Amino acid sequence: MDRRAFGLGAVAMLGLSACASGDPRFRSYNGPEVTSVVVNKSARKLYLLHHDKVLKQYDVDLGFAPNGTKKARGDGRTPEGTYLINRRNPNSQFHLSIGISYPNAQDMAAAKAAGVDPGGDIFIHGEPNKRKDRRRARKTPDWTAGCIAVKNDEIEEIYAMVKNGTTISLRP
């Protein structure tokens, strides 16, 4: 076998093995099941629970108008109520994100009665991918449009620990 062919083959194998290791953002978790997520907006805390035991807690930033519940698209508020974790976005503009099932039927009925659009696309997510946006977010508490933001290493952990279908309670 010629050395050049062998060298190219070896480089190709190393490249493939690097791909097999996966994206470092996607951690694995083998601990107790996260049975619920609780966000205490006034304390700016997110808790991951296994039944009544707190497994992890995180400091969070909220919507730019943090007091009160979300009522309409663009109001800058983070919703209050009970929802489900219902989707994941590995290609988020905020590192990684997991979706919250806002609006629910009650939110939609309230918005309809008020003649407004309830909004949507509420996520738990990391920091902005763009460096200038990330610098701005670090200087400004409660910088999101209604989402719950944590640091990038924290969303990686949350993304691994919390499964779709997990209940999330957002409390005042």
Results as ranks from 00 to 15, higher is better:
residue 27 R to T: 11
residue 30 N to V: 06
residue 31 G to A: 09
residue 31 G to Y: 09
residue 31 G to H: 06
residue 35 T to K: 09
residue 36 S to A: 13
residue 37 V to N: 07
residue 38 V to Q: 06
residue 39 V to F: 08
residue 41 K to L: 03
residue 42 S to V: 03
residue 43 A to T: 03
residue 43 A to I: 00
residue 45 K to F: 02
residue 46 L to A: 07
residue 47 Y to A: 01
residue 47 Y to R: 09
residue 49 L to Q: 08
residue 51 H to T: 12
residue 51 H to V: 07
residue 54 V to N: 03
residue 56 K to N: 07
residue 57 Q to V: 00
residue 58 Y to K: 03
residue 58 Y to G: 02
residue 58 Y to V: 05
residue 59 D to S: 13
residue 61 D to S: 14
residue 61 D to Y: 07
residue 61 D to Q: 03
residue 63 G to F: 01
residue 63 G to H: 01
residue 64 F to M: 10
residue 66 P to R: 02
residue 67 N to E: 13
residue 67 N to H: 08
residue 67 N to W: 04
residue 70 K to M: 02
residue 71 K to T: 03
residue 72 A to P: 00
residue 72 A to H: 03
residue 72 A to D: 01
residue 72 A to N: 01
residue 73 R to N: 03
residue 74 G to V: 05
residue 75 D to H: 04
residue 75 D to T: 00
residue 76 G to D: 01
residue 77 R to I: 04
residue 78 T to S: 04
residue 78 T to D: 00
residue 78 T to V: 06
residue 79 P to W: 08
residue 80 E to S: 10
residue 82 T to C: 01
residue 83 Y to S: 08
residue 84 L to V: 05
residue 85 I to H: 01
residue 88 R to H: 10
residue 89 N to W: 00
residue 90 P to L: 06
residue 92 S to W: 08
residue 94 F to I: 02
residue 96 L to T: 04
residue 99 G to Y: 06
residue 99 G to L: 09
residue 100 I to C: 05
residue 102 Y to R: 11
residue 102 Y to E: 10
residue 103 P to E: 08
residue 104 N to Q: 11
residue 105 A to S: 15
residue 105 A to M: 08
residue 105 A to N: 12
residue 106 Q to I: 14
residue 107 D to T: 09
residue 110 A to C: 02
residue 112 K to V: 00
residue 112 K to H: 14
residue 113 A to F: 07
residue 116 V to L: 12
residue 117 D to F: 07
residue 117 D to L: 04
residue 117 D to H: 14
residue 118 P to K: 07
residue 124 I to F: 04
residue 125 H to M: 05
residue 125 H to C: 08
residue 126 G to W: 09
residue 128 P to W: 10
residue 128 P to V: 03
residue 129 N to M: 11
residue 129 N to C: 07
residue 130 K to M: 13
residue 132 K to G: 00
residue 135 R to I: 15
residue 136 R to Y: 15
residue 136 R to V: 13
residue 137 A to T: 11
residue 139 K to L: 15
residue 140 T to R: 15
residue 140 T to L: 14
residue 143 W to M: 10
residue 144 T to E: 06
residue 146 G to H: 12
residue 147 C to M: 12
residue 148 I to A: 06
residue 149 A to I: 09
residue 149 A to D: 11
residue 150 V to E: 08
residue 151 K to N: 14
residue 151 K to V: 02
residue 151 K to Q: 15
residue 152 N to T: 07
residue 152 N to Y: 10
residue 154 E to Q: 15
residue 155 I to W: 01
residue 155 I to R: 04
